[in-house]
Amino acid sequence: MAERDIPDWFTRAEEAFDPVHQRVAAAIKSHGLPTHLSLAPQEAVYFFVHAMEIAYEANKAGIHANALSQTRYCIEALAIIELGMCRTNGREAILEDWLKGKASPGKIRQWLAREVWPSYGAGLWSESWEDFMAKLAGAVQPYAHYTSQLAQWQSRLHFANPGESTACIESGPIVYDPQKATRITLYHSILNYTLGRIWLANCGSEDTKFYGIVSRLGDALGKSRYLDGHQTNWDQQFWAMVWDRRTGSPHLE
């Protein structure tokens, strides 16, 4: 990728990566949870980071379907990390239920939406944090299992002609698709932005320097050509086959 082709969100994501993860790691160590619950959010951080590392390497190698499958795990770990950082009454009970297998990821997100998220403010644009998180989870929910939708991430779209219902698609054991690789990297950047926002909401209201880093990342993500903004369902930009309707090219203008 030539320097002039590097999107602003990619540069901002690199700037934010270490500050986000350093702060989250430190916050999880001072979670204020009783001993029998204390390991859960710490292990969720390890899982989140390792899943993203595996996804990053697979994505770089052109193994996009496997990268996306690993990426989906990060959403469920994110909820447990958040329980470790928030100080809202009831978090210990919901975490205990999760450890006993009585609270699904969906149930935890419902609790967060009711008890925690209203104080977070807007998401990437002007939508509520609950709506933002619904889109974030919905973008990768179809890839929970090996389905035809996930299998489409194993091929490369070269050209589409919707008017004639034709397309040129390359398939093989490993097929690197620059557009798919970029969109998965974009999703990883949104996840790290989300982590940063969660930390700010629960731990760092006075950290103005970090607030600036996260805000710049959010602004850049919101302007990405691969997200069509809060006016429509931006999560659909993480379908396997996305192209410019005017040209048929997978490289969006």
Results as ranks from 00 to 15, higher is better:
residue 220 A to D: 11
residue 196 G to Q: 06
residue 189 S to Y: 05
residue 195 L to A: 03
residue 182 T to K: 14
residue 202 N to F: 01
residue 175 V to R: 08
residue 188 H to G: 14
residue 136 L to V: 13
residue 160 A to F: 09
residue 204 G to Y: 08
residue 238 F to S: 01
residue 196 G to K: 02
residue 192 N to Y: 02
residue 230 H to N: 08
residue 131 D to S: 14
residue 238 F to L: 06
residue 185 T to M: 12
residue 207 D to V: 00
residue 191 L to I: 06
residue 232 T to M: 14
residue 241 M to W: 13
residue 197 R to P: 05
residue 133 M to W: 01
residue 146 Y to P: 05
residue 128 S to Y: 01
residue 139 A to C: 03
residue 197 R to E: 03
residue 154 Q to S: 15
residue 213 I to N: 09
residue 217 L to R: 08
residue 166 T to F: 09
residue 123 G to H: 07
residue 129 W to S: 02
residue 151 A to I: 14
residue 174 I to P: 11
residue 164 E to S: 15
residue 160 A to K: 11
residue 173 P to Q: 03
residue 167 A to R: 00
residue 198 I to C: 02
residue 133 M to D: 01
residue 181 A to T: 05
residue 228 D to K: 13
residue 152 Q to H: 14
residue 136 L to G: 12
residue 127 E to A: 01
residue 240 A to V: 10
residue 239 W to G: 12
residue 165 S to Y: 10
residue 147 T to D: 13
residue 130 E to I: 10
residue 135 K to L: 03
residue 206 E to W: 07
residue 218 G to A: 07
residue 153 W to N: 02
residue 229 G to E: 06
residue 210 F to N: 04
residue 189 S to N: 09
residue 196 G to C: 08
residue 229 G to P: 05
residue 193 Y to V: 00
residue 190 I to W: 05
residue 219 D to W: 04
residue 220 A to K: 07
residue 143 Y to P: 12
residue 193 Y to C: 10
residue 243 W to S: 00
residue 149 Q to S: 07
residue 209 K to R: 12
residue 201 A to K: 06
residue 166 T to Y: 08
residue 163 G to W: 12
residue 222 G to S: 12
residue 194 T to P: 04
residue 132 F to Y: 06
residue 211 Y to H: 15
residue 229 G to W: 00
residue 225 R to H: 11
residue 223 K to C: 15
residue 231 Q to R: 14
residue 173 P to N: 08
residue 222 G to A: 10
residue 123 G to T: 01
residue 227 L to G: 07
residue 192 N to F: 11
residue 198 I to N: 01
residue 243 W to E: 03
residue 189 S to W: 05
residue 226 Y to Q: 15
residue 141 Q to P: 03
residue 205 S to F: 03
residue 165 S to F: 10
residue 238 F to M: 02
residue 169 I to R: 11
residue 192 N to I: 10
residue 236 Q to A: 12
residue 183 R to T: 06
residue 172 G to C: 15
residue 133 M to H: 07
residue 215 S to R: 10
